[in-house]
Design a protein around this nucleic acid. Structure first.
Lengths: 113, 113
DNA sequence: CTAATTTGATACGGATGCGAAACGACCTTC
DNA sequence: GAAGGTCGTTTCGCATCCGTATCAAATTAG
């Protein structure tokens, strides 16, 4: 993957601009980071683990998961091995959303130099 | 610029995750989109123009500019040719921030596949 | 069994964002 | 110069997010 700093910024602008324009789900940076972590890194994902990984407080993760669950982008499942923990799971809807977003970035990249 | 959808998502995750972790300025997607537009596209930039371009309401742009100005990432200057308009201007601080962010994306890209 | 710890969720007060509507200042038109 | 339009801002009520502190439930340690 080769990319210059200028191209990186243009890429970011193109994708973020298009997201804003199209009135997509209004995710904060934290919510998006959590979502990408859940979908792109190996399970299992717990509230505690996500909080540690992203240097967030636990309530912030709980609330972000509330939002993602409300959008249908994540599901909570209690851990059978430790009923205190919850396992954050992916959904079809979330997979589709991220897939579309990835395609948007690719299309944007093609338009740049 | 060649990039696969999967790499695009990994790139996004890496950069957003690092931004969250490092406690950078907590910009919303709208605020970021406005900032990138101001810095990466040709001036002049007005509230009206930014709102039209991003399909936002004017008060949303005004508030985003309040935030960017508070962070030292933008300046308002009244248009000498039409005192109703304001011209959104770049700052050194904002340039440095975006430059650093671009470098972060480049570094992240290097770590991917 | 009891006490201490861990886990995720919740209550609270405060900060910040939103859209709709209204506003003052300014330009344009006649 | 009065009427109407444009531009950016402000006000209003509402929704969402934050961090701190606290909670109940489950687990672990003694």
């Amino acid at each position: 993957m080769k990319i210059s700093a200028r191209n990186a910024l243009d890429l970011w602008r193109g994708a973020v601009t298009e997201t804003v324009r199209s009135r997509g789900p209004d995710l904060t940076a934290r919510q998006l980071a959590i979502m990408l972590c859940v979908y792109l890194t190996e399970p299992p994902h717990t509230v505690r683990g996500l909080a540690t990984d992203l240097k967030l407080r636990k309530p912030a993760v709980t609330r972000a998961l509330d939002k993602l669950e409300q959008l249908g982008f994540a599901r909570r499942k209690s851990d059978p091995d430790d009923a205190r923990s919850i396992l954050v799971q992916r959904t079809v809807r979330g997979s589709v959303y991220l897939s579309d977003f990835g395609d948007l970035v690719v299309r944007t990249a093609r338009q740049i130099s």
